[in-house]
Amino acid sequence: MDESPGSRQAVVNANRRPPSAGARVAGLGAYRPARVVDNEEAAAAASVDAQWIEQRVGVRERRYAEVADTVVSMAAEAGRAALKDAGADANQVDTVILATCSMPSPMPNGAAQVAAALSCPAAGFDLNAACSGFNHGLAVADALVRAGTSGGVLVVAAERMTDWVAPQDRDTGPIFADGAAAALVLPSSEPGIFPVAWGSDGTKAGLIAIPAATGRMEIQGRKVFRWAANALTPVVDAACDLARINPRDLKAFVPHQANLRIIDAQAQHLDAPAIARDITGSGNTCAASVPLALDALRRSGEITSGDPVLLFGFGAGLTYAAQIVLCP
C-alpha cells in the first residue's frame, strides 16, 4: 500500500450544521502519572525542608511523568477517558483543542497528534494561555459548537512541567508537576457552559516566564501571589453576572491550583459548599490543574450532574479566564 506523502485523501469536516442553543460538558477524563513524589523527595532536590513546602504552597505530593508519558500521550489518555465518560464515539469529535505550554518543540502541534491517537476525524490546534488554558479552550469550544462550526469538541489540557523547571529551584521545583484532563463539549438545547469572563495583562508578562537563554521557568512568586489573591476578584464576579447566577447558588469553586493560600484567599469571596484543593495531591499542573481538580471533585461525590460550578484559571501571560459550567 502506497503510504507516500499525498497518497491519502484529506478528510474535511465541512458538514453544514445549524447553530446550537447551547453547549455542554458531556464527559470528563483525567490522566495522572503513576509516579508519586512526596515532599521528602522534592525537598531534598531543592535543598529545603519538606514541611516548608506544605506550609508555603500546600503541596504534600505530586505526580511526575515517566519517560513514556509525553504531553501527547497523556492528553490522549485523558481524552479517551472523557469519551468513555460521555458514552461518545470518536467520530463525534470534529475538533480537538490542546491547551498546553509544555510541548517539547513548537512543531508539530500536539492536538493533531492527539486526534490521530484517538482516531478522531478532527481539526486540531494547540492553545497556549498557560494556567488558564483549559478555561480558554472551553470558551472556544462553546463558541464553535453554538455557531454550528463544530459538532463535538474535545478540550484537553496536558502538561509535562517537569521538563521546564529545575528540581533544585526552590521557587518552582517542588511546586510544578505533570498530568492531563479533558472535557468533551457537545451541542445542547440549553446552555451548560456559560459566557466567559477573560482578559490579560501583558505588562506583567515577566512575572512568569521561560527565558530562551535558560529554558527553565522563572517566577516572581510574591508579586504573582499578590496579583492572584487580590486583583482577580472582579473576574469571578463578572463570570457570575454573565451567567446570571447568584454566587450563593454555586455548588463548587474550582480555581487554578497554584497555591493553597491563594485558593483560600479567593474562596473567601464565595460561599460555595465545595472548594477544590487538588493541589495538595497533584501539585501545580498548569493548564491541566482546573480540569483535574474538577474531575477529582466529581469523583469524590462533592458535586453531581447538573451542579453549577465556577471554573477559574490564571497564570503566565498574564492571562485569566472564568466561566460557570454545569457538572456532567
Rank of each mutant, 00 (worst) to 15 (best):
S102Q: 03
W52N: 05
A213G: 12
W164L: 12
A139S: 12
R35C: 08
D249Y: 03
G133K: 03
T203K: 15
V11E: 11
D271T: 13
R248S: 06
Q92D: 13
G148H: 13
V96M: 07
G27M: 02
P247G: 05
P5F: 11
D271R: 12
G306D: 11
L83R: 04
A177G: 08
V235N: 01
T100C: 06
D85G: 03
A243I: 04
T233M: 05
S188I: 02
E190V: 10
A86D: 04
P19T: 09
S102Y: 01
R277H: 06
D85Y: 04
L310H: 00
D201G: 08
Y64K: 03
E3Y: 11
T172M: 11
A229I: 06
R63H: 10
A238D: 14
T95E: 13
A82T: 06
A99P: 01
A141K: 00
G124P: 08
M1I: 12
L144Y: 13
A183L: 05
A158D: 10
G301T: 13
V67L: 09
N15W: 08
V235P: 08
M103V: 08
G315P: 02
A205D: 09
G152I: 13
C131F: 03
D163T: 11
V96R: 05
P247L: 05
P273L: 04
C240L: 11
K84D: 12
A116H: 04
V290Q: 06
V153D: 08
V25L: 12
V36R: 15
P191N: 07
A90Q: 07
L144M: 15
A43N: 08
P104R: 05
